[in-house]
C-alpha cells in the first residue's frame, strides 16, 4: 500500500496542489502509485473513504468547555481515573469535529 498519509502531508506543504483545478486533480494524482479509489477519495476530499481504506475509526474531537458552573466546581484531581487505571482503548463515539 502506498503511503497515503505521507502523500497528504506533502500535498499540504506544496503550493502546487492548492493551485490545481478541481477537474485536473485526478490527472495529477494518477502520477502517484495509489489505488484509483484512493486517488478519487483524495481528489474529492472524501475523508470517510480514506479512513475506510486505511482501516481507521472516525474520531471525536470536541474540546469545548461545558457550562461555566460545571467547569470550576470540581477539582480536576477528584474525578479522573486513579493513577493505576489504564487509558481506555478506544472511544465508541460517532465522529465529531469541533470549533478550535
Amino acid at each position: 500500500m502506498s503511503d497515503v498519509i505521507g502523500l497528504l502531508e506533502r500535498m499540504g506543504q506544496d503550493a502546487h496542489w492548492s493551485q490545481v483545478l478541481p477537474e485536473n486533480t485526478q490527472l495529477a494524482l494518477s502520477e502517484t502509485e495509489l489505488d484509483p479509489e484512493v486517488q478519487l477519495a483524495i481528489a474529492s476530499g472524501n475523508q470517510k473513504a480514506l479512513e475506510i481504506f486505511l482501516g481507521l475509526s472516525p474520531l471525536c474531537g470536541m474540546l469545548e468547555p461545558g457550562k461555566e458552573d460545571e467547569q470550576e466546581d470540581q477539582d480536576p484531581e477528584e474525578s479522573p481515573p486513579g493513577d493505576d487505571e489504564e487509558m481506555p482503548e478506544r472511544s465508541l463515539l460517532t465522529p465529531q469535529g469541533s470549533a478550535n
Binding site: 472516525p58 482503548e89 465508541l92
Partner: peptide, 27 residues
C-alpha cells in the same frame, strides 16, 4: 487531541511515544 484519524496517524509518525486522548470520550 485531534478531530480526525488521518491527522492522528500523521502526528503519530513524529514521535515514538504518542498517546491518543480519544479513548476518554464516552457516550
Amino acid at each position: 487531541g485531534v478531530a480526525d484519524s488521518l491527522m492522528e496517524q500523521w502526528l503519530m509518525r513524529m514521535n515514538p511515544d504518542t498517546r491518543s486522548l480519544q479513548p476518554f470520550y464516552r457516550e
